[in-house]
Amino acid sequence: MRADRIRLLVWDGTGVRLLAKRLEDGEFRWPTIEDGLMRLSAAQFPALLEGARLATRPLANETPAPALPGRAATQ
């Protein structure tokens, strides 16, 4: 499976649209699945299509970004 490609059927209120996208650099990062559902907000959907990482917790091989000076790190 290629993680750099996505195809979606989207109902826009007047009909169905087929959306296909391939990222030139990187891969799509899906949010975590909770209770068998993947929930996306209206703001998360366009971010996902641009290749932003939407997972709520870091992947095993990722290191959290360092905290800004004078501020505690958040988890």
Rank of each mutant, 00 (worst) to 15 (best):
M1T: 10
R2A: 10
R2P: 09
A3W: 05
A3L: 09
A3T: 11
A3M: 09
R5A: 07
I6F: 01
R7V: 08
R7E: 10
R7T: 11
R7W: 05
R7H: 04
L8I: 08
L8D: 02
L8E: 02
L9P: 04
L9M: 15
V10M: 06
V10K: 02
V10Q: 08
W11A: 14
W11R: 13
W11P: 06
W11E: 14
D12G: 12
G13I: 02
G13C: 04
G13M: 03
G13K: 07
T14P: 01
T14K: 13
G15N: 06
V16K: 15
V16G: 11
V16C: 15
R17Y: 06
R17G: 00
R17C: 07
L18R: 14
L18M: 08
L19G: 00
L19R: 04
L19I: 10
A20D: 09
A20F: 08
A20K: 14
R22A: 11
L23M: 04
L23E: 04
E24Y: 10
E24Q: 14
E24M: 10
D25K: 14
D25S: 12
G26W: 07
G26T: 10
G26D: 08
E27V: 15
E27D: 14
E27Q: 15
R29I: 08
R29H: 14
R29G: 12
R29C: 12
P31L: 04
P31N: 05
T32A: 09
T32G: 09
I33R: 14
I33P: 02
I33E: 12
E34H: 15
E34W: 09
D35F: 08
D35P: 01
G36Q: 09
L37Y: 07
L40I: 01
L40P: 03
L40G: 00
L40F: 03
S41E: 08
S41R: 06
S41N: 07
A42F: 05
A43K: 12
A43M: 12
Q44V: 03
F45E: 02
F45N: 00
P46F: 01
P46Y: 02
P46R: 00
A47T: 01
A47M: 13
A47L: 15
L48D: 04
L49P: 02
L49F: 03
E50A: 15
E50S: 15
E50M: 14
G51E: 03
G51R: 05
G51K: 02
G51S: 06
A52Q: 09
A52L: 05
A52F: 06
R53Q: 13
R53P: 03
L54S: 05
L54G: 03
A55H: 14
T56R: 13
T56H: 11
T56C: 08
R57C: 13
R57G: 13
R57K: 15
R57F: 11
R57S: 15
P58S: 11
P58E: 13
L59W: 12
L59S: 12
A60H: 11
A60Y: 09
A60C: 05
N61V: 11
E62K: 11
T63H: 11
T63K: 15
T63Y: 06
T63A: 12
P64F: 00
P64G: 07
P66F: 00
A67W: 01
L68V: 08
G70E: 03
G70Q: 00
G70D: 03
R71M: 06
A72F: 00
T74C: 01
T74D: 06
T74Y: 00
T74F: 00
T74L: 07
Q75S: 10
Q75P: 00
